[in-house]
Design a binder for these strands. Structure first.
Lengths: 202, 202
DNA sequence: TTATTATACTACAATGTGTCTATTAGGTTC
DNA sequence: GAACCTAATAGACACATTGTAGTATAATAA
């Protein structure tokens, strides 16, 4: 979808109003309590106008997610074309985190707010507690480095770790600079990568 | 809260009906579309009866989350009292994954279903793609082991990785046994732990 | 200017919410 | 068994939300 279609400025304005109003509301009340009524009221548009743009709230969320991923992809692709290989992944990470930090209001409500199922948060807390207490009375350490872990599991592990760490970082109002966090993430991830290298078919 | 209060069997029955109906519905339709009406209808109870137990759907979710965490805590605490230290964390992990596998229908809809904000899923996918393509043209590998990463970041990283991996595992309908997955998670996590050990104040 | 189109406005039926009241039915206790 | 307690049911209510009409108005594009 190139930039040529030249969208009506009124459309852009309305969509921006809706988006801002929604993010605004999400800072105050839970997603379940957000209605088209409230969004329209906050956005100072007619309720019917909302339906001219989105079928319902879930679809609007989809569209917002599309936009978000689009923006990040722009960054990622830009870096990948520019300086390939080597520290590519590292500068991608830095740029990504800086982008998130710049739009932290958006990302915080979208990624890190009390979404709905508290389930993730609860489980997360449980693991945090476990790991915390575990790391206190640490006595043994494994000599089982360089083991082959199935690729998909390693990818699940790394991806979840990245996203989850960023979410925690946002929730804590970004206590580290994007650069520093990127460095730590790179370290933690590379260490995992070492074990992936052998890649023996298990 | 001891078991002594002896709850009315009718209450237990109704709560179970509500819970089953809700999980049932969550397999079919999105959370936003689930109403008290539908739950009551599916549970074959009167709509008013729902309000005798929960104030609204979000509160019901909270209660269900409480129950879930309670069950997991039972497992964790049981293991911790039984065989302390050594492979403690490993048997905790195995028991936890087995418990999740046994109640996979519940956990799948609660943790791994298309909850609401597709945002997490999208970002997750982006990272999976990145890591996948990255691991294909892997040329360099870091010699920067045993670096000190701030404790909170390491905890964020590990906790997110654990939960996220389990979620992916559930979404793929558990292609590995709980025992095997627990082993892989232990490996990945211990490798990270190695770097945590120095714990120099940054 | 003229044609197009997004938005505003009003209205409507349908559904959902939360909370009453009164009644029925199941469970517990003596 | 009878008496008591309380859950669940049933019907009703005011109110909010939804999704979709039809028409009018204003902004944009040609």
């Amino acid at each position: 979808m190139p930039t040529t279609p030249r969208t009506d400025p009124r459309v852009l304005r309305t969509r921006q109003l809706i988006r801002d109003a929604f993010i605004d509301l999400l800072e105050e009340i839970q997603l379940e309590k957000i209605t088209v009524n409230r969004i329209a009221e906050r956005a100072t548009i007619n309720r019917v106008t909302f339906y001219l743009h989105y079928r319902d709230i879930p679809e609007m969320l989809e569209k917002l997610a599309d936009d978000m991923i689009g923006e990040i992809h722009t960054i990622v692709d830009g870096i990948q074309n520019q300086s390939r290989s080597r520290d590519m992944d590292w500068s991608i990470l830095v740029n990504m985190l800086e982008h998130i930090a710049e739009n932290s209001k958006f990302y915080k409500v979208m990624l890190a707010s009390q979404r709905i199922p508290v389930f993730n948060d609860r489980l997360m807390k449980l693991f945090v507690d476990l790991i915390t207490s575990r790391s206190e009375n640490q006595t043994d350490f494994p000599s089982t480095l360089s083991m082959a872990v199935p690729k998909d599991i390693a990818i699940w592990y790394g991806s979840s770790a990245f996203i989850g760490t960023i979410v925690c970082w946002l929730r804590e109002d970004m206590p580290y600079t994007p650069l520093f966090l990127a460095k730590q993430l790179s370290l933690l991830f590379h260490i995992q990568q070492v074990t992936d290298l052998p890649t023996d078919p298990e």
